Simulated scan of single mutants.
Amino acid sequence: MKLKRRSKAIGDFSMASMTDVIFLLLIFFMVSSTLVVPSALRVLLPKSSQQTNARPVTRVTITPEGEYFVGVGNGEDRQVTFEEIDPFLQETLDQNPDMFVALYADEGVPYGEVVKVLNIAVENRYQMVLATRPLKE
C-alpha cells in the first residue's frame, strides 16, 4: 500500500513558532514581575468608603509598634525618629513644591500618634492624604 504525501495548503501553518512566542512572553513576564518592588511595610489600614485616586509622592508610615518610616516615590522606606519627619518632609518639599504626603497608619496605632504627624502637615501647610483601604475587600 502506497501512502500519498499531502502537500501543505496555504491555510496550514506550523504551531511551533506560536509556541515559541508564548514561551518567550511567559519568560518576559516572569522576569519583569521580579522588578516590581512592593512596599515592604505591612500595615493594616483602617477602612473607608472614600478613596483617593492621586498617587502620593511622599509616604509616612506608622507601624503598630509605633515605628516611623518615610519614603519618596518608588524608593525604599527608611526608619526615622519622630523628630526626623519634619526635616525629611521639608527637604522633599524643596525638591518638589507640588508634593503631597500620604500617611499610612496601622489601625492599631493610637490616635494621638496620627494627630502628631497631622500637626506637622498643618504647621507647614503640606498637602496630606490619609491612606485607607476600601470597605469591600
Rank of each mutant, 00 (worst) to 15 (best):
E113C: 05
S17H: 11
K2W: 02
R78L: 11
L41D: 01
Y126E: 00
V60G: 01
K47E: 15
N74S: 11
V80W: 07
M18Y: 15
E137T: 08
D98C: 01
Q50W: 07
L118Q: 15
V37K: 11
V129P: 00
Y111W: 12
A9P: 14
R55H: 13
K136S: 13
F100Q: 00
P38W: 01
G66M: 00
T132G: 09
P56I: 08
Y68I: 09
D12L: 11
M15F: 15
D94N: 11
A105S: 10
E76H: 12
R6D: 12
V31E: 01
Q90H: 09
P38N: 10
V117Y: 04
D98K: 04
L26I: 12
E65C: 03
L26R: 03
E65R: 10
T132D: 07
V57W: 04
F29Y: 08
F23Q: 09
Q79W: 02
D77L: 11
F100N: 01
E91L: 04
G11R: 13
M30Y: 14
P97E: 09
M1V: 05
P38M: 04
I120G: 00
E91W: 03
Q50H: 09
R133V: 06
V122K: 14
P87C: 02
P56M: 05
T19P: 02
P56A: 13
L24V: 05
D98H: 02
T61R: 00
K136A: 11
S49Y: 10
S17L: 10
P134Q: 12
G73T: 06
V122T: 12
T58D: 08
I27D: 06
S39A: 07
E123A: 13
A16C: 03
R133D: 12
R5D: 09
M18W: 13
V36E: 08
T52S: 14
S7C: 07
L130G: 00
M18P: 04
D98M: 06
E84P: 02
M128H: 04
S33K: 10
E113P: 06
P97T: 09
A105T: 00
T19G: 09
T19Y: 04
I85N: 00
T63E: 11
T61H: 04
A40F: 03
Q95I: 01
R6N: 09
A54T: 12
N124H: 08
G75C: 03
Y111V: 14
D86Q: 15
A131T: 01
A102R: 13
T52A: 14
